[in-house]
Every structure is written in structure tokens, then in C-alpha cells.
Design a protein around this nucleic acid. Sequence first.
DNA 1: TTTATTGCAAAACCTTTGCATGTAT
DNA 2: ATACATGCAAAGGTTTTGCAATAAA
Lengths: 146, 146
Amino acid sequence: MDPTRLRVAGIKATFPRLKILDVFHQHADQHMSAADIYRNLISERSSIGLATVYRVITQLEDAGVLKRTQLDTHSSVYELNDKGHHDHLVCRHCGRIQESSDATMAQRVRKIARQCGFALDSYSLVLYGGCGCRKDAPAPYIGEFE
Amino acid sequence: MDPTRLRVAGIKATFPRLKILDVFHQHADQHMSAADIYRNLISERSSIGLATVYRVITQLEDAGVLKRTQLDTHSSVYELNDKGHHDHLVCRHCGRIQESSDATMAQRVRKIARQCGFALDSYSLVLYGGCGCRKDAPAPYIGEFE
DNA sequence: TTTATTGCAAAACCTTTGCATGTAT
DNA sequence: ATACATGCAAAGGTTTTGCAATAAA
């Protein structure tokens, strides 16, 4: 793994940091919690403490390398911050996470902020529902949203 | 407080439940965490355990009386579920929460769900930034979002 | 009376922190 | 050599749960 990104971030290129970045690149399509990352490291026989995982992902987030999102009430998930803003669709049945980029949406959000006299810094849009994983899926909620 | 809503929800009209509903009606403009509700009860000399607060708000959420939202990483906040869907604008400086209803936004969200083959159940849109509380506020982030 | 509900304390989680040890520069 | 990172264990904060006591129907 390239230590340059870490030097740019102003932090030392240590083994745990390189290994954790590695895990993110190996699972570039996934959203991982601290525990997920920790499990991955364990399964590669890299003995890195959970506390270090937390410290490193926080530093990488501060450095702009990772992006943190809270998709459920339990824990935050992290992903590489190299794709620009995108929204998340979370399946209530299988937990799968889809992503969506929508320029019109982003514009609309900026407009709302403007109308409310709000200096927009960032935003989070999460859709909850069913991704089609279940044949016997209950009919989508018919009401306010469909 | 009217016990009818509780009977409709299929749960007994007990003192803790009525008192907690009362707190929500007394602070209808606020978003409260379990700890906030608990503090309110304490200050009224209602001795209701924190565990009961958690149990009751979960039941009231299941019954559709309350709405749960996660606006920050620390804890969930609850509000009366009597206003239809709305988005939240959270000030990073003072913590104030503004609300916004935007029909176009809601439509756009439905469209995204449709395009992704997703059976939309609900969604959460949270804007983070500055509400104008600070004279010395740092300039809004100039980048992807402004 | 019968069943649901409460309170308390303990546990379960996720996340952060203090401190002695170890490592990158 | 020096400052920064790590590991471990302990603590912090939020939320859930087991169980005996209590209150609603």
C-alpha cells in the first residue's frame, strides 16, 4: 500500500494504518464498521487492536481519506472517500446497501438550505425499504411514500 | 393526557406512558433523547425509571405515535409523529434543529427508489451546517455543496 | 385474578481514553 | 533521540434485558 497518502495526511506510515487502508481497498465496494475492519484484520492474522482501528479510522476520516456514515442506529460505517457525494439505499431485509448519485437531488438540498438561511456543510440521505431480495417480501408501504 | 391514544395502540394506559406522552406534548417543538425525557420527568418529580422511558418510547414508536431519528452519532431523538415527513437541518455550532418540508424533494426520493428497483419504506434527509447563530462563523464550506 | 408493566441492577454494545511500551522518522 | 503510535485494559455513554414486585384490566 502506498504510504504517500498517509504522509499527505500528515501522519506516519505505520503498519496498522497501511493494513487498514489495505482492507478498505480490498473491499472498495463495501461499507464497513470498526468491528468489520477488525474482523478482517484478524482473519489475515494481522494483530491490530480494536482501539487502534478506531483511532486510525478517525484519523483517516479527519484527513478526508474515509467517509463516515450512520446507516442504522447501531454503529457507523466507513468507506473510501473517493466517489463524491452519494446517497444510500438500505434494505431492511438483507441489509444490502445500494448507492445512488443524483445531481438534481444535490441541487434541491442546496436550495432547501438557502431557503432556510442555512450554511450547508454536508448532508445525508438514506432510503430504507426492500431491495427485492425477498420473493415473499411484504408489499411496499403504500402511503406517504408511494 | 388522553388515554385513548394508548388504547388505540393496544397498550395499557399506565402512569409512565401518560406522563411521557405529556412531556412530548409540552415540548412539541423539540427533539428529545431518552435522557432528555428522563430529565424532564425528574424535574417534575415523576419517578420513572430510565429503562421504562426506553421501553415506552419504543412502544410508542412501534405504535406510530412517536418518530425516531438519528441526527448525530450519540443518540436517537424522538418527536411526535403528527406532522408528516420532514427533513432536519442540524446546526454544528449551537445544535439547533430546523425542520423543512419539501414536496419536490419527497418526489425526487421516490424517483430514485424507482430507478433503483427499491420498494421505498421511508427515508431520512439531514442537512449539517451553520444556522447563523455565530457572528464569527467560519465561512460555509465552499466545495461540493455550495 | 390474570396479565402486562415497572423498577432496579446488571449486562450488552459501541466507542473513547490513560498509560506503559514500542516504533517511525 | 524524540515525538508519535500502539496495545491493553478500563471507563464512558447509550440502550437492552432478567427478574421480582406492582399496577391495570
